[in-house]
């Protein structure tokens, strides 16, 4: 069982620096997860570290190909439309 990195990756290295299994390789600026090294962080921390720091939605998939940071999941949680309009000065 291993996670994988999609082509949405921006090569920021964050995952590589936090992976406790040293499972992330980079070659020609392409980041990949070495399958036999990745244990999905089942032992170390419980939550996959790469997916916990990755800044891009849908860049990391679980073993079944499901996105660990699906669309919208990394957006700010504190804003609603009303607050945005207020900041734009469109409502008081």
């Amino acid at each position: 069982m291993a996670l994988s990195i999609t082509s949405l990756c921006i090569s920021c290295s964050a995952c590589k620096l936090v992976c406790p299994e040293n499972a992330i390789r980079v070659s020609d600026n392409q980041f990949t997860i070495v399958e036999h090294r990745c244990n999905e962080c089942s032992e170390a921390t419980g939550t996959p570290q790469c997916a916990s720091i990755c800044p891009v939605e849908n860049a990391i998939l679980d073993a079944n190909g499901i996105s660990l940071n699906p669309t919208g999941s990394l957006a700010p949680v504190t804003f609603n439309q009303e607050r945005i309009l207020a900041l734009k000065g469109e409502i008081a």
Partner: peptide, 10 residues
């Protein structure tokens, strides 16, 4: 800020 990675968690 949207999120912070701290103590192994987002």
């Amino acid at each position: 800020y949207s999120w912070a990675y701290f103590n192994n968690q987002r």
